[in-house]
Design a protein around this nucleic acid. Structure first.
Length: 480
RNA sequence: UCCUCCUUAGCUCAGUUGGUUAGAGCACCUGACUGUUAAUCAGGGGGUCGUUGGUUCAAGUCCAACAGGGGGAGCCA
């Protein structure tokens, strides 16, 4: 008999039909009640087996074991569920030695411990919910852009340019690391390497996305990104996924509108399609926060927070206004900030958190940062006072996780771009392909990068980024 | 990379001022019971106290280094 997904049985709420389910045992009570989960949804299906079932088979029904069960769906006699499956045939597909299996429903394994058994953690309620939401968000990203006529562009994972200076790179090579071919001056001869030049894993697909935008008008990338920085935080990974839309003819305001609509769409999509999972995650978060002192607890529950963000305009302020707010803040006057505030500084986490969590209490888009602290490709603002040169940058800061989006209108004027690159010691000749877009039919355009795991964190409420990617890669950790 | 805290049973954690044989709950095993909901009840087994070195008559406990992890910071998405 064809397998029915547990989600469909629970959704149907109909009874009296015969069917087959397959899944993994979460718990087995009373030698009679199996809580069965097949990952299709949060909830388990209660399977009731006959008391006369062969006792050697009954002994094999243990947490983690895989079973196939045929039976009739009936209204449940118990209180915890509407329907249950009365088994007529139970088949053990895969046994699971309970002495060795580390996941038992009645244990309360910590997130840190589950990270060590990441190959099994999908089978827990928490990670089941997190990764169903992650899937939903990934799908919603494609849907959002597809519905708006964007072309999904696959930018390369192996690249030769580190021109953007977005971070430390992982080198890609087939040269023998113990005796690489060398030039006369002792440096490694990359001409003998696989690609005939020094290559690394991509740190961003943006520059290539810009090339696509100059033909398709609107493109987006969504792929793995690699940074070899020795960052040990709850919001950094060495391998993560990034979404980078790039739109011709858009200016900074269009860019903000797109980013805000995008984030709200993702939240709305998840609220609509992952209600059960989000409710579970909200409950989990609530339990976790009970451990914290009152003042550190968040004011809103997870779902309230998502609905709040969905229903309120993001605050939009310039960098200059942000600095002004910080300078006027009680926190600044009481010298609560560890780092000083003045125009020109790169804002520290404490400053961003003050703006987002204390002052505005909602996502904030900060624009027009000082040119000196931003990347070469950002469009230089006109009519700046001397010493106050800014660029058309925008960062979206979200409560709890900080910068979730970084983007800008791009510098489309060839001379100004070349001059800026020279000032910042970026090899102009090597970047001829990038500059060609400014030579051949250049237009104003804008785009941004959104860290996928950060939006998954925001939506699921998971505080550590390592818990929203299946197999996290971080310094000293590439297990599984 | 820096600051800080942590590492004791499969898991979550106690462990007093350095002092006899290392504790609990859950999990696991054995048995009982059977419309349970993290099932319940009775009994049982389970430890190189992260690793290495040091101080001491004596170290889970004090010191150092290293490893791993948490929280914070930097860098960023």
């Amino acid at each position: 008999m064809a397998r029915t997904k547990i989600k469909d049985i629970l959704l149907r709420e109909e009874t009296g039909y015969e069917t087959t389910v397959k899944g993994w045992v979460r718990s087995f009570r009373n030698n009679q009640f199996i809580a069965l989960n097949d990952g299709s949804c949060m909830n388990n299906l209660q399977v009731v087996i006959d008391l006369n079932t062969d006792s050697t088979l009954v002994r094999m029904i243990t947490p983690g074991a895989a079973v196939a069960i045929t039976g009739t769906v009936l209204p449940s006699q118990g209180k915890g569920q509407k329907v249950e499956l009365k088994a007529s045939e139970v088949t053990l597909l895969g046994a699971c030695n309970p002495e060795e299996y580390p996941l038992q429903l009645k244990n309360r394994p910590s997130l840190e411990y589950l990270r060590e058994i990441a190959h099994l953690r999908f089978r827990t309620n928490t990670f089941g919910a997190v990764f169903r939401v992650r899937h939903s968000l990934a799908f919603a990203i494609h849907k959002f852009f597809n519905d708006r006529g964007f072309v999904y562009l696959h930018t390369p994972i192996v690249t030769a340019s580190d021109a953007e200076g977005a971070g430390e790179t992982f080198r890609v090579t087939t040269l023998p690391f113990d005796h690489p071919p060398r030039l006369e001056d002792g440096s490694v001869n990359f001409e003998e390497d696989f690609f005939g030049r020094s290559t690394n894993l991509t740190v961003s697909g943006q520059l290539e996305a810009e090339l696509g935008a100059m033909a398709f008008s609107e493109v987006y990338t969504f792929g793995p990104t690699f940074r070899a920085e020795n960052s040990n935080t709850a919001r950094h990974l060495a391998e993560f996924w990034m979404i980078e839309p790039e739109v011709a003819f858009n200016d900074l305001k269009d860019n903000m509108d797109l980013a805000e609509a995008f984030i709200k769409y993702l939240i709305g999509y998840s609220l609509e399609h992952n209600r059960e999972d989000l409710e579970f995650l909200a409950q989990r978060l609530l339990e976790e926060e009970k451990q914290k002192p009152q003042q550190e607890r968040s004011e809103m529950g997870l779902i309230e927070k998502l609905e709040f963000v969905l229903n309120h305009q993001f605050e939009r302020i310039t960098y200059t206004e942000a600095i002004e707010i910080l300078l006027q803040s009680p926190a600044y006057k009481k010298k609560k900030f560890q780092y000083d505030v003045k125009w020109g500084i790169d804002m520290q986490s404490e400053h961003e958190r003050y703006l987002v969590e204390k002052h505005f209490k909602k996502p904030v888009i900060v624009t027009n940062y000082p040119a000196a602290i931003k990347a070469f490709y950002m469009r230089q603002d006109d009519d700046c006072a001397p010493g106050r040169e800014t660029v058309a940058a925008m960062d979206i800061l979200a409560p709890g996780i900080g910068e979730i989006v970084g983007g800008s209108q791009r510098e489309e004027r060839l001379e100004r771009l070349e001059q800026r690159m020279k000032d910042m010691h970026i090899p102009v000749e090597e970047m001829y392909w990038y500059l060609d877009t400014r030579r051949f039919g250049t237009v104003p355009h804008a785009g941004f990068g959104l860290g996928f795991e950060r939006i998954v964190q925001f939506v699921t409420g998971m505080t550590n980024i390592r818990d929203v990617i299946p197999f996290p890669r971080t310094p000293k950790n590439a297990a599984f």
